[in-house]
Design a protein around this nucleic acid. Sequence first.
DNA 1: CAAAATGTACGAACTGGTACGTATGTCAAT
DNA 2: ATTGACATACGTACCAGTTCGTACATTTTG
Lengths: 212, 212
Amino acid sequence: MASKAENGRKNDPQRTQENILEVATEEFSTHGLAGGRVDAIAERTRTSKRMIYYYFGSKEGLYLAVLERSYRKIRTLEADLQLSNLEPEEALRVLISTTFDHDEAHPDFVRLVSIENIHHAAHMLRSEAIRDLNVSVIETIAGILERGVSQRVFTRQADPIDIHMMISAFCFFRVSNRYTFGSIFRRDLSEAATIERHRTMIADAVIGYLKA
Amino acid sequence: MASKAENGRKNDPQRTQENILEVATEEFSTHGLAGGRVDAIAERTRTSKRMIYYYFGSKEGLYLAVLERSYRKIRTLEADLQLSNLEPEEALRVLISTTFDHDEAHPDFVRLVSIENIHHAAHMLRSEAIRDLNVSVIETIAGILERGVSQRVFTRQADPIDIHMMISAFCFFRVSNRYTFGSIFRRDLSEAATIERHRTMIADAVIGYLKA
DNA sequence: CAAAATGTACGAACTGGTACGTATGTCAAT
DNA sequence: ATTGACATACGTACCAGTTCGTACATTTTG
């Protein structure tokens, strides 16, 4: 029979949780933790507020779940980049492009991180799942830098974490500060031409720095 | 006679407003607009909640006043840098150092800007005072770049706004993402040695980029 | 039937905002 | 100088709407 007509309810806990998380991600990333409304989330869900508390216990619990889910989504993307068989410079360019495109494609994630910083990363600190994450990037960068130096294509001995920060800063800022920056300089950072220019710009800058 | 003993109230509107703004800056920058509590602000003020509404009309009005005040404070610092009599490269280094030190010294400001971005810069857009501001930096940078190119110390033709973004991104990110970054990589970005290293790093990167 | 999943309705605390009343300062006329 | 009138500056108590959270009832599923 028709499964949704005639409020024939189907229990589908996984789908329900996922649905809640999706809506909650949107809500929290546009309004922040304090600004996000549980009722607003519930309304846009195909289920009810009762379910939010049933599965996530509290508003903060939901927020934390949203945060973890967002981070977990990146891990998959970042992990399976095969950079070790590329020349150091090329490997770095690919890594930078990937970071750049990721931030550009996931403004929700960027905003959640911004929001976490406003809260002194209090929730992230409580979550072991999140902390173990991005560390792999550092190892990747460290490997590239070492190879580059020994091949004498990079002349500068740089700290991998510093390099990661330089890349992150640029890619992240473009998205996180899109609105204030756009408002001050009347520039739309999401235009295709601008995106292209910035993508090569950050790569050139980082590689130039390592070659100086 | 004693002026403050025996609740001898003195009318001092300017002081009252300034006091409110100071406390409100703290509150909003640590909790966000939605998370900031008017009652909490009132309590830490030497006056009452009534006065907040008397002078600023609403919570949003107060927030906007806080934002404008923060921006106004920078204008003074930024304006009186005499860079035109310095060599292009040196001028750029001074400008970068200034930006770097400013962000490092004013985390409140950085956080307010982050918060504004969460709100799509809605309040900034409404304030003419703020928009007219940072534009002067672009002219400064443009001048430096032109001189640098004509003196052949810079080989690359770069967009001043892009250069400004590159500088801002790095300086801003260090402060805005201090907590999540620190939480993931166990690195304290406010250590003196780290600050020193980063300050020269961003300058080297930008100048290297322009010379490439 | 028992356990998990879900829906409805409601409560208690918080929070932005205000009504009402009081004190302080200013200035003109005495 | 004193007085009185009026505007500005300020304090207290309170209200009404919002918002997180829950008690209770019901359905689905194994």
